Each structure stands twice: as C-alpha cells, then as structure tokens.
Simulated assay, not measured.
Amino acid sequence: MMKRFVCIWAVIVMLTAGYNPVYAADGAEAFDIEKGEVIKSITHSASLQSEVGKWLSAIAGPVGSLNIEPTSGIAVKVELAPPLKINNQWVSGTVTQVVLFVSQSPSYTPKLLIFTKENEVVAVTLKYNFKRFLKSNDLYRPQLNLSIPN
C-alpha cells in the first residue's frame, strides 16, 4: 500500500514539477503510465482550452479514495493559459493545471486532478466522453476504459 502511494506521488511530481516541463504556452503532454515516459505533446490552442473547460463543467464528484493514478493507461497534463475560474460544490478557485488519468482497467473510470492558483488540489470523477478528444490527439486506444461513472 505504501509503495503504491509513493508511486502515485512520484508520477504526480513528475507531471507537475518539472519532468519535461510544459508551460501554458506549450499546451499539454500525454504520459504513458506503464512506460513512464511522455508520448505526445499537444500545442496550446483555443480548442484545447475550451476542451478543459468542458471537463471542468462535467465534474460528477470527488474521487472516493487515494487511488488516483491507474497502473496502466495515460495521463494528460494540461497547463491553462489563461487560468479558468470554477465555482461548484467540489472546486472553487482559479484552475491553472489539470491532469487527466485514463486507464485500461475495467474498474477505473477517468479521473481529473485539478490544481488551482489558491494551492488547492482536488481529484474528481467526470461525466464526460473523452473519446473525441483522445482520437483528435492520436491518443485513443480501444483498450482504454472510457466508461462514464454513474
């Protein structure tokens, strides 16, 4: 259990603290969780910014455990420029960065880790279909579990 926790935080630190740093003007990076490497960079654009806004509008609730990062699949880190303001029952603040986790596991639905300017970090589930986003960025794999939580 402790080893899993350390692995989760190692990936979060790599994605957020300078491992192949992404700056807001650069857009996003997709990270293969099993391989432990960045597999794609996505250029910042109005459509990427809009897409993340849709994700933030689709929050279904908080993640019910510390098991945020899956053992397989991808993580997509997006720096927001400009930051997006959000105010709902789960998150209130100015979102500067998000990390989307999508797994191959049938029991793991997509999760979003949200970082705010106010130093808040929140993990949430989403009622959103990520297939179009993943396909348009050449990240879609049929084995990814894109199930929407109830």
Rank of each mutant, 00 (worst) to 15 (best):
Met1His: 12
Met1Ala: 14
Lys3Gly: 00
Lys3Ser: 11
Cys7Lys: 13
Cys7Ile: 08
Ile8Gly: 09
Ala10Pro: 01
Met14Trp: 10
Ala17Asn: 07
Gly18Pro: 10
Tyr23Ile: 11
Ala24Pro: 09
Ala25Ile: 13
Ala25Pro: 01
Ala28Phe: 06
Phe31Pro: 04
Asp32Ala: 10
Lys35Glu: 12
Glu37Leu: 13
Ser41Arg: 15
Ile42Pro: 02
Thr43Arg: 14
His44Trp: 11
His44Gln: 10
His44Asp: 15
Ala46Trp: 06
Ser47Ile: 13
Gln49Tyr: 14
Glu51Thr: 14
Gly53Glu: 08
Lys54Ala: 10
Ser57Gln: 13
Ser57Asp: 13
Ala58Asn: 03
Gly61Asn: 01
Pro62Leu: 09
Pro62Lys: 15
Val63Ile: 12
Gly64Tyr: 04
Ser65His: 08
Asn67Tyr: 09
Glu69Thr: 08
Thr71Ala: 11
Ser72Ala: 10
Ala75Phe: 05
Val76Trp: 00
Leu80Arg: 06
Pro82Gly: 10
Asn87Gly: 12
Asn88Phe: 04
Trp90Thr: 13
Trp90Arg: 01
Val91Phe: 06
Gly93Arg: 02
Thr94Ala: 03
Gln97Gly: 07
Leu100Pro: 04
Ser103Trp: 05
Thr109Phe: 04
Pro110Glu: 07
Leu113Trp: 11
Leu113Lys: 03
Ile114Arg: 00
Thr116Trp: 07
Thr116Cys: 04
Lys117Glu: 15
Glu118His: 06
Glu118Val: 12
Glu120Ile: 14
Glu120His: 11
Glu120Ser: 15
Val121Lys: 13
Ala123Gly: 11
Val124Thr: 04
Leu126Val: 12
Lys127Val: 10
Asn129Gln: 08
Asn129Asp: 14
Asn129Thr: 11
Phe130Ile: 00
Lys131Asp: 07
Arg132Val: 13
Ser136Leu: 05
Asn137Ala: 04
Leu139Met: 03
Tyr140Phe: 10
Gln143Pro: 02
Gln143Thr: 15
Ser147Gly: 11
Ile148Lys: 00
